Computed example of a mutant assay.
Amino acid sequence: MRADAARNRRRIVVAARELFAERGLDVTLDDVAAHAGVGVGTVYRRFANRDELVEAVFVDHIREVTERIESDIADVGPWDALALLLNAVGEFVADDRGLATLLTSVDHSAPVLEEAKQAVSRLVEGVYGRAREAGVIRDELVETDFFGIVCMISAISEATESVAPGAWRRYMELLLDGIRADGPRVPLAVPALTAEQIQELDSRKHVRH
């Protein structure tokens, strides 16, 4: 892609991200073009429809989250890396409701998402693997539990942010305390979600929207 085309594409994605965060997904490509300061034809040359633009914005979110977390955990121990990972995801979801909207609206089977999702998976696997090997998390905790943790934090953030901004952090602290290896624990009565179940949930979300 030529440099000017790449710059225009970036302007379009940034503009769409701002509009999605402010107004939800109920915006048109014309709206995005106006906000980006480019012609409508420029937007349509880069993105055939709104779904393609939504996917591009979601990929941009994923890369930003991944890069920030990788930088934050570079020089910390296994437990601190896990806590930083979960808190960073919580911050992104809580501070930018556009991300939460995209998370439940994008087609998670879209090929354009695969590379970004694999990068996230590798990050989670690495942090989880270090924590497990160091013995700082409960034996019952598995990688797919992180999906549930993120969903819980997203839900409590959405429910409380208008009246108690940042309240999600209290529940993150409770969750972190619950997954530590040390201290007395109540046995987990329900098994963790499987990867197949999470994939099915993602598919249902896309169908609803």
Rank of each mutant, 00 (worst) to 15 (best):
Val142Tyr: 00
Glu140Gln: 10
Asp139Tyr: 00
Leu176Pro: 09
Arg170His: 14
Glu143Ile: 05
Pro184Ile: 04
Glu173His: 05
Gly166Arg: 08
Gly178His: 14
Glu158Asn: 04
Ser157Gly: 15
Ile149Gly: 06
Leu176Phe: 02
Asp182Met: 08
Ala159Gln: 13
Tyr171Gly: 10
Arg138Trp: 00
Ala134Gln: 03
Pro165Thr: 09
Ile137Tyr: 01
Ile156Pro: 07
Ile179Arg: 06
Ser157Phe: 01
Asp145Thr: 05
Phe146Ser: 14
Asp139Arg: 05
Ala155Pro: 05
Glu173Thr: 12
Ala164Ser: 13
Ile156Val: 14
Gly135Arg: 02
Val163Phe: 13
Ile156Gly: 09
Thr144Lys: 03
Arg180His: 08
Val163Tyr: 10
Ala159Trp: 00
Ile137Arg: 03
Ile137Met: 05
Ile156Ser: 11
Met172Val: 07
Phe147Glu: 09
Arg170Leu: 05
Ile137Gly: 10
Thr144His: 03
Asp145Arg: 07
Glu143Met: 01
Val142Pro: 00
Thr160Leu: 10
Ser157His: 04
Glu143Asn: 01
Ile149Gln: 04
Ile149Tyr: 01
Ser154Lys: 04
Ile179Tyr: 05
Glu161Leu: 02
Phe147Tyr: 13
Glu158Lys: 03
Arg170Phe: 07
Arg169Ala: 15
Val136Lys: 09
Gly148Met: 08
Ala155Asn: 12
Glu140Lys: 07
Pro184Leu: 05
Ser157Tyr: 04
Met152Lys: 04
Ile179Cys: 10
Asp145Asn: 13
